[in-house]
Design a binder for these strands. Sequence first.
DNA 1: AAGTCTGGGTTGATGTGTCAACCAAGGTCA
DNA 2: TGACCTTGGTTGACACATCAACCCAGACTT
Lengths: 163, 163
Amino acid sequence: MAKEPWLGDDEQKAWRSYLLMWKLLETHVARHLQREYGLSASDFEILVNLSEAPTGRMRAFELGEATQWEKSRMSHHLTRMEKRGLIAKVACDARYPEIAITEQGLEAIRACAPAHAALIRELVVDTLGTDRLVSLGDAGAEVATAIEKHRQTTCPPEVRGEY
Amino acid sequence: MAKEPWLGDDEQKAWRSYLLMWKLLETHVARHLQREYGLSASDFEILVNLSEAPTGRMRAFELGEATQWEKSRMSHHLTRMEKRGLIAKVACDARYPEIAITEQGLEAIRACAPAHAALIRELVVDTLGTDRLVSLGDAGAEVATAIEKHRQTTCPPEVRGEY
DNA sequence: AAGTCTGGGTTGATGTGTCAACCAAGGTCA
DNA sequence: TGACCTTGGTTGACACATCAACCCAGACTT
């Protein structure tokens, strides 16, 4: 089967090696979190944001900005998390509910955060060293900008979901 | 709400910027593929592998090695793809079926591959430049090794799924 | 030849993500 | 006041992923 020269050989190789690494990392970390602490990566993301909020509360909307999830995903996931007692929806604004982390939710992140950070540290930070990690972060920012630009030029109508 | 010093400040910032970028990239590319060509990222991955195989056929098992999916995910997804006519399961070995790409499947990747590659090129390759992309690939390989090692030391019993 | 391993593959239940359609409180303007 | 936008949020249907249990052809044992 013919293989088109989509990218240069080195580029292609680098890109694929990178893709593979990321997939490994994602599933490895997610499994760790799930097996040891019963939290999905999504749960973790929400809990981190809430626990870092000064009041421990945020509007679903703010969470959406922070995580870049679409609103329906957010809604579904928050419903599930509420059912599990990790968060609560409190009606204060007489309009839109605020999302509050519960005692149980707090315990959950407190329990897993150190191990999670240690894992990232071991697998990524220590492997790359701070310097390379920082340039990785810079590269990330540049690519993110490129994506943002591309999104605006190629999706002119507001079809872009609201991420 | 207290914030533990999980990672150094620069490290944390770099890591998060990186995470954000990746999320943007993943969803942006997936949406592009889906909207314009009706293929999910998973479909694409399978089709790429099959189309690059000399015979256009692979065992599900080989696909599993290439993609690092678990076998059940593979099975489910192949069933769905077969239903859509992108691939076919052919029983040749009188034991385990081979997965063959169909004419329709071939057309599908041929149709989307150039645009997909161009998108990656624009967003990543051109943004970073070949040099940085290559070092990204190297970094990826190192991290992948670290993950592999970690998996073996921390999951001694064969609970590791078979990825 | 019967008994049991082993490992590739399937299945079903359940959790998660996406799309599109809908709902409702507030704002805008007649 | 009433017809209309927005806009944050929900819902339902469906695609996808994960886990655990199962199936079964061949290899290994005796």
